[in-house]
Amino acid sequence: MNVGLTRCMTLSRVISALVLAICAFMPFLAPAVGEPFLIGMFARAMIWSIAALSLNLIMGYGGMISFGHAAYLGVAAYTVGILSFHGVTSAWIQWPTALIVSAIVAFLFGAISLRTRGVYFIMITLALSQMLYFLARSAELYGSDDGLTIARRSATGLSFLNLNDRVTFYYVIFAALLLCLFVLWRIVNSRFGMVIRGIKSNETRMEGIGISTYRYKLAAFVIAGTMCGLAGILEANLEKFVSPDTLNWARSGEMIFMVVLGGMGSLFGPVTGAVVYWLLQDKLADLTEHWQIIFGPFLILVVLFARGGIDGMLKRRPRDA
């Protein structure tokens, strides 16, 4: 029992709970400390958390280093934007459509890229997502390079779910984050999750015990893509704007940063990673506009000295005690 108790009390879990608590109370905390802009910042960080969480399923748990994860974020955001542009503003149409579109894109991209391994896989996922980026840039009807402004947030038709209300929308995002965490927690511990983790550990061995790995990897890809689509929907609504940059490889790279920073293959790690990423970016940008010069080496240090990211660092501590 004692062992169980200590395990529950690891620093990593305390930090996770703390991060979630801060997210939960931010709409009250931010005005109280006189920095209301923090609400928007945390809303953004939570959306990025969802995207990073979804990437972590395939990258952290499944060992599939996708460099094109922004594709699903982007197509979902564009789906919301384009539907809105054509006058379809209902959330009940926009959201499911966007999720289905990102699932289909993830299925197609996965079906192609998962036939390759290693560097080829990274390059193909990158190339496929860049294709969409250039497609978006050339779509004149939808603003090309300038992007597409979304007149208003998705309409739910429910008075208590008015997304134009800042706090309501904030809690919708928070609820989506909790939902994703819960769903992922179930998935990674399920039979399916064990197979995905086994594939990361030793794919040949998995085939040797009778697992046709391709179909499991593809299923994980679609789940991750759809979840990232949810982040895209939220982002389109938060910014009321979608541009080709949503699809750019730089966004995919940022997601990888967050996952690595937080801790690959740890359930909560990507959330910590996303929040720390946003805070660092914000604080460092105050110091210098070339904040990446500091952030880059910082990330390298994390990779070199804190394998398993922030989460891995926190987990090592209590064992010594």
Binding site: R186, N189, S190, M194, V195
Partner: peptide, 8 residues
């Protein structure tokens, strides 16, 4: 192994 919910 397409069972996504119960803990293995």
């Amino acid at each position: 192994s397409f069972r996504f919910w119960a803990k293995a």
